[in-house]
Structures are given as C-alpha cells and as structure tokens.
Design a protein around this nucleic acid. Structure first.
Lengths: 218, 218
DNA sequence: TCGATATACGTACGATCGTTCGTATTGTCT
DNA sequence: AGACAATACGAACGATCGTACGTATATCGA
C-alpha cells in the first residue's frame, strides 16, 4: 500500500503508516489533499507532528501515500467486490454501478468519493499528485469500459464502450457531489435511473437491471 | 456585484473591489476558495495586504464576494448570451449546452469552471460559502430544466425536465474536469455527442442539434 | 556482537496565514 | 464648514504551516 514511499520498512513503521493513512484519507476527502496538514493529521492519529513527518519524508510523499491508500480502499470496495460477485457481462456492469453508488452513499470516505474531490482539486495543478490521481481514475474508467465491452452481446445497441463509460462515470460523480452539497439521497436515484434507462434503451434485459431499479426508487 | 458584502460603498472602493475580485476568481478557480489567500491576492492585484483585508472585512466575506463575482461572469457568459441569441424552446437548450462547453473549453476562468471547482471543494464544508455556491448551481440547473420544459413540444419523448437537466449538467461537469486533468479537448466532444444523442433519442429534430454536432466532432 | 537503519520524539526555524491597530487621506452628507 | 465614513497603508499580533536537526530507542543484517 505504501510501497515506494521510501523503501523497505520495518513492521512497526508500516503499522504506524497504516494508522496515519487511515486518518489521512478521511481528512483529505473533506479538506482536500492540500488542506491535509501534517500537524492536524498527527493529532488525529495520536502521534507527534515530527513523527508523522519522518514517516513520510515530505508533504508531497504524504499526499502520494494517501492517494495510494484511498485507491486501495476504492478498489476493494467497488471493483473487487463487484468482480467477485458477478461473471463478465452486463450483470457485472450493473454490479459495478450499484457498488459505486453504495460506496458513495455509504460514505466509505467521510467526505464522499475521495477521487471525485482529489481530481477536481488537482485538475489545474500539474505534478506527481495529479498524475497519481489521474492514473487511478483512468484505471477505474478503463475497467468500466472493458467490462462494458464484455457486455456487448447483451447490449446490442452498444457503440463505443469508452463513450458510455464516460457518460456513466459522469452521472456517478454528479450524484456524489450533489448528494453532499444538498445532503439528500435523491441524486443517487437520478443517476441510477439514468444508467438504467440508458442501458435499457440499448437493448439490455430488464431482469439484469433490477439492482439499478432498486436504487432508482429508494 | 459586491452588493451586500458590507454596505454602501464609495465609487473608489467599488473600483478597487472590482479589480481585486477579477484576480480572485481566477486564483480561486485554480487554488480553490480556501487556497485563495489575502496576501497573495493583494500581490496579484498590486495592493497592500491590509488594504485588501479592509475592503472585504474577513476571508469569508472575500470568498462570498468572489462567488458573487464568478456568478455574474458565468451568468453573462453562458445564460444571457444564449438567451439573447435564441427563442424559448429546443434551440435555446442547444445554445445553452453549446455556450457552456465553449465557456469551459475557452477557460473563461483560468482553472476551468469556477463552480465545478467550488462545489466539490465545499460540498463537505457547511456554511455560508457552501450555501452561496449551492444557490448559484441551483439557479443554473433550474434554468436549464425550465428551458427544457419550454422545449417539450419539440422533444416528444421528454419525461421529467429536472432529470434530464441533472444528466446534462453531469456530462458538462465531467467534460470540464477531465479536460483539465488530461489537457485534451476530447471530453467536450464526448459530452456534446452524449447530449446530442440523448435529445435525438427523445425525438428532437436533427437540424436544431447542429451546434452540438459541430462540437461533437472538433 | 556490532554497526547501520528506521522509528519516534522534542525543539526550533523561517514563512505565511487571517486579523487587528493606528494613522493619514479622501470623499460624502448635514 | 465640520462631522463622519470609507479607503489604503505599514506594522505587528498569535497561530499554523512544512521542514530540519539532534537524540534516544528499537530492530535488522553482516
């Protein structure tokens, strides 16, 4: 998880980093990766400020480690759980969208989707942090597009999977932000309905879309 | 524009505020409304730090004035220009979407759409600033929904205008962020194509959709 | 066993933050 | 004309920022 930050670690340090990063991703999902300060993070993790600084070397390294930790949590929460529960094809696409909606609505990160926040914060700030965030988003969107490709036999009207993946992630991100802004679950229902209707219009079988039906009318 | 910040101002102070806010909205679109510091803003505007502080009273008041200034620029750039150029109906909806895409791609704010950045930055930070940002977004999304309602005769398949407005703004915001992240115009073409195809599927006339066609294949 | 390495801490550095105070200047209202 | 309010500035406040240094402790490899 923190591999590559400095190099081979002792077990004690890895455990400390794990504890600190668990706090860091929640703070950063609210305050942003720049708003995440070493002093405040140390206080939240019950360690000294200089101790946290030593563990990560620099603020940028801390930010990169935080992105990596958030990525691991996202991958296991959304991607791996959907992949484990469904075979390739439309059902997995539906499971991915449903898992993402649950991940955001369930506030797996206190401040909503970590990457929705980080990508907007760093989209105009070139550097290693932006690259790491972009890479994580690319991986997610590409995985969704590939999963859509596998679903092609069940979605006869499917054109470019990358185009549809763009549209779906756009709807998911919008649901996340609007839900946080207005403190309501309604945007999740709108996003679920939009994805469901879109897939249905492309010829998908209604029965496979039921997980989205449930989330479209909560 | 800065009305309500403190109260009745002299002409000289209003001019100073105007100059400072012109810098503030560009800085905030990159660094965020929290990353916008009074000292740096004063330097960019060629004034003293204490002078800027006096003009706005507090950082939060400065943030609120910055939101108001950005809102005015957005309204004149997107809403008023589309409203002036088109009558009620589908053509105005198309003009609004096209104007928004041009507004984002043309970097009317240096760091891309100001409100896309501010809404994500403050979606987990309750307070007057979040309320001001939410109010601006509500106004925009409501105006788009109402405009869609006027277009109903030309879009026979139209269901809930608010639902379609949610989907369209989701696509626009996604195009903005992804374009900034990857430094490419491709996301604008994806968003334009998505809106065009969506309206076409609902029965809109192809001829009215040509402004989106142009932006879908740049 | 012994040197090397990685934690952790306290402390301190210069820089910048938002804010306040005093003061001079300018403009407006009675 | 005179009282008042709004600019604009320099200076300074305490607080916090990221970082660096010294030091003690614990762990690992040679």
């Amino acid at each position: 998880m923190t591999q590559g930050v400095i190099d081979g670690r002792r077990a004690r340090g890895d455990e400390s980093r794990r504890i600190v990063l668990a706090e860091a991703i929640d703070i950063a999902s609210i305050e942003g990766l720049d708003g995440l300060s070493i002093g405040r993070l140390a206080e939240a993790a019950g360690q000294s400020k200089s101790g946290v600084a030593t563990l990560f070397g620099s603020k940028e390294s801390l930010q990169l480690a935080t992105v990596a930790a958030a990525r691991a949590r996202f991958t296991s929460t959304v991607i791996e759980s959907a992949r484990a529960a469904t075979p390739r094809g439309l059902s997995r696409v539906v499971a991915l969208v449903a898992a993402w909606l649950d991940y955001s609505r369930g506030r797996v990160f206190t401040g909503g989707c970590f990457f929705a926040a980080a990508s907007v914060e760093f989209d105009s700030k070139p550097g290693p942090v932006r690259d790491a965030v972009t890479d994580a988003l690319d991986t997610w969107e590409t995985y969704l597009a590939i999963s859509l490709g596998y679903a092609r036999p069940e979605v006869p009207g499917l054109g470019d999977p990358a185009q549809l993946a763009f549209e779906i992630t756009a709807l998911l991100d919008a649901a996340n932000t609007r839900s946080l802004l207005r403190d309501t679950d309604e945007p999740y229902a709108r996003a679920a309905a939009a994805v469901r209707d879109r897939l249905r219009a492309l010829g998908a079988d209604d029965a496979v879309l039921t997980p989205l039906d449930e989330r479209a009318t909560p």
